[in-house]
């Protein structure tokens, strides 16, 4: 890994789970080239509750996408738990996401034809867990996020906050090491957003899951153990909170 001066280091001496080294991701659009990431470097340690903030177009979501192997950088390197994503095939990346990374999206993105329980079971089904085991785990995690009495509801029968709780349950049910949350509170009112953050903090604390947020939300930034600010695809600043 290069020693870029913009590199945001974990620095607490813990085990590094994510390394982003001098990553560039440029898009060619009708209006010219957009430098979504322009030589950004970053390391994240296990158990961090990290927020990546910045104005729209600063590259927050792209950063999450390249960390999750959803997008491929034009140059630079991304490592997750010691694995070079650039060297992995699509099916290997899918297996990495399935087993080690949970995703939470701004728009919840639950499957509308599956129930709350089935949405939560889905990743475990991909992992090949037996039906009885995955059902038990899904029920446990749904109870943990306060939806134990809504197992058979469809997403359309839930409020935004409840849907995002299901998304959190889906993200953590497969026991990932890392959860990537792309503006998870953006569509929620402040009370619901705070409740959701409480819950994710608890999961971070109790399960040791590393959370990486992209966010505009001051409440998320306030609670983050480390705050990284992006601007124009580069890391502008880093602030360690605890």
């Amino acid at each position: 890994m290069s020693d870029s001066k913009e590199k945001a280091e974990g620095g607490a001496g813990g085990e590094v789970v994510i390394e982003v080294d001098d990553v560039k991701r440029h898009y060619v659009t009708g209006g010219g080239t957009v430098k979504a990431l322009d030589g950004a470097s970053l390391t994240i340690e296990r158990g961090e509750f990290l927020a990546i903030a910045g104005p729209s177009g600063s590259g927050k979501s792209t950063m999450l996408n390249v960390i999750g192997g959803l997008d491929v950088p034009d140059s630079g390197e991304v490592m997750v738990e010691g694995k070079h994503l650039g060297e992995m095939r699509q099916s290997q990346l899918a297996a990495l996401r399935r087993d080690r990374i949970g995703f939470i999206f701004q728009a919840y993105n639950l499957n509308p034809v599956l129930t709350v329980l089935e949405n939560t079971e889905y990743v475990m089904m991909l992992q090949g867990k037996p039906p009885a085991e995955r059902k038990k785990l899904a029920v446990d995690v749904l109870e943990e996020v306060g939806l134990g009495d809504m197992l058979d509801r469809r997403p359309s029968q839930l409020s935004g906050g409840q849907q995002q709780r299901v998304a959190v349950a889906r993200a953590i049910a497969g026991a990932p090491a890392i959860v990537l949350a792309d503006e998870p509170t953006a569509n929620l009112d402040s009370t619901t957003g705070q409740e959701l953050l409480d819950m994710m903090e608890r999961l971070n604390r109790e399960r040791g899951v590393t959370f990486v947020f992209s966010t505009h939300d001051p409440e998320v930034m306030k609670r983050a153990s480390r705050l990284i600010r992006l601007r124009d695809g580069k890391i502008e600043s880093e602030e360690r909170r605890r």
Partner: peptide, 14 residues
Amino acid sequence: EFGVMRAIGTSPWQ
């Protein structure tokens, strides 16, 4: 929706 399925771990063949 398919993009989301891929994101949460569904392989191309699945």
